[in-house]
Design a binder for these strands. Structure first.
Lengths: 152, 152
DNA sequence: ATCGATATCATGGGGCACTATGGGCGTCAA
DNA sequence: TTGACGCCCATAGTGCCCCATGATATCGAT
């Protein structure tokens, strides 16, 4: 299984390091990467992290946009300039930088959440809150669909 | 027969493990999996579990959605981050994590229920309650249909 | 049909391997 | 000199693998 799935929360140690879940590491390693690239999610207080292909995914989307629109420029800037590298040490840990803390609110613990082709890093409580919200929204949507479909 | 059918309840041992019914296991094995993936059902206190194809089914659906709509993000989050792995040990058992207990209320026993392409895991009593409710609803619906159709 | 032999399965427990976590120490740069 | 960072090793917890046992079902023989 070469997908980022599930979620785990690990503690940041006194030196500001945190272990990337072994399962995620093995996927990264299998893909032949020793470095990760991280973006600050636009809509969420989380980081999107993964190998370089994290970018190509968005790049493809960029190509489909009007290259003269301001949005495209913004996107490009966001992707290529606003990101940061996460260097894995010998034990599969990364150091949590201010770059990450600012955007996510991460302080003492980090929740790693799979997102299929990449993964996310969250403040545990915010992750939990988001999870609850997502469930609620999806359940709501399902109810709506049942209402309309149920008439037949 | 490669379908998940019927239901069985097994006990969780002192180490927090429970045997997946042999019949279910044989299906999983035939599909060539050693790991299962489980999702917390949106509308029921149960877990939907199965092989990775449990996801691909949804993934296909995801592809057809607008990738930038909130719903698509929600779906992706639910599928990839909110789920968890169930690792089968050499004897076909899985360890019951808090992840499962919280959502299902499972404590000492687990009811495995077939669902054709995948299966579900329930707290035995809740399963029984749900079963009763479903029967009742179906009977009710049938009565309704008889009333309207019966006029002919 | 009864009874015994055998295979299958759920359950129990020991022990090892791996992972997360903590900390020491040297190096380089401010 | 001090602090940040990279590299190394130590340790504790727990997850996983292996083997044992008892119950139940299946099948064959008498």
């Amino acid at each position: 299984m070469n997908r980022f799935l599930g979620h785990v929360t690990n503690r940041i140690d006194a030196k500001g390091r945190v272990s990337v879940p072994a399962h995620f590491r093995s996927i990264i390693q299998a893909a032949g990467h020793t470095e990760l690239y991280a973006l600050r999610s636009l809509h969420l207080p989380a980081l999107d992290a993964g190998g370089p292909e994290l970018l190509t995914r968005f790049d493809n989307h960029l190509d489909s946009e009007d290259p003269f629109a301001e949005t495209a420029d913004d996107m490009s800037f966001y992707l290529h300039a606003d990101g940061g590298f996460l260097k894995l040490d010998g034990d599969g840990r990364i150091t949590v930088t201010d770059f990450m803390r600012e955007h996510t609110g991460i302080s003492s613990d980090v929740t790693f959440a799979g997102a299929n082709t990449h993964f996310q890093m969250w403040h545990p409580e915010r992750f939990e809150a988001h999870r609850a919200k997502v469930r609620q929204r999806l359940a709501e949507k399902r109810r709506q669909e049942n209402l309309t479909a149920g008439k037949s």
